[in-house]
């Protein structure tokens, strides 16, 4: 008998059942169902593995360090790192006694970048040991926001993304 036709018959009662997963006469699982089940399971495993490897790739990758002068509009939403010096006294905005945001102006010699931290993140930075002051060299990463107004901003998402650099004695 044709092999393809045989696969469309119930393996238990031998009746023609077509492409169904369970025989309507004897309720046995068909050959099609077994194959489908394996394919589904395999696809599920492959998908989880694929996303897992993508995660590992992202996890093991360093955030790219950019020069402020190179930042362009197409870099909007990019995760980036910048190293530079704080050129003005940090501005801390408070609403009802709570810190709503912290703003730093950073210069790396190629341009100026506004670095922002909001709410709890700003509080953690201000309250922690890493709070930079005017003239400090910092290394900061976060999400870039390059709007059409031309002034790029870097938003710090967790307090650990900002750190003071220790300058070597001259």
């Amino acid at each position: 008998m044709n092999k393809e036709l045989a696969e469309l018959e119930c393996r238990s009662c031998g009746r023609y059942v077509g492409l169904v997963s369970r025989c309507p006469y004897c309720d046995a699982v068909t050959a099609v169902a077994v194959m489908q089940r394996r394919m589904k399971l395999l696809s599920l495993i492959l998908v989880v593995a694929g996303v897992g490897f993508l995660y590992l790739m992202t996890f093991s990758r360093d955030v790219q360090t950019l020069e402020i002068g190179d930042i362009r509009p197409v870099m909007n939403y990019a995760s980036a790192r910048v190293a530079g010096r704080v050129v003005r006294r940090p501005y801390i905005s408070r609403t009802d006694g709570n810190i709503s945001y912290l703003s730093l102006l950073v210069d790396d010699g190629t341009g100026l970048l506004r670095v922002l931290a909001r709410n709890d993140v700003a509080f953690e930075i201000v309250d922690g040991d890493n709070m930079p002051g005017k003239g400090d060299s910092i290394n900061v990463s976060g999400r870039l926001s390059v709007n059409g107004d031309g002034a790029p901003k870097l938003q710090v998402l967790v307090a650990g993304q900002i750190s003071k650099m220790v300058e070597e004695p001259k």
Binding site: L54, T58, V63, L66, V74, A78, S79, R143, L144, L157
Partner: peptide
């Protein structure tokens, strides 16, 4: 959202 593996020039 947080660590896209794409090149920074494709971030938008």
């Amino acid at each position: 959202f947080y660590a896209a593996p794409l090149p920074v020039v494709s971030s938008f």
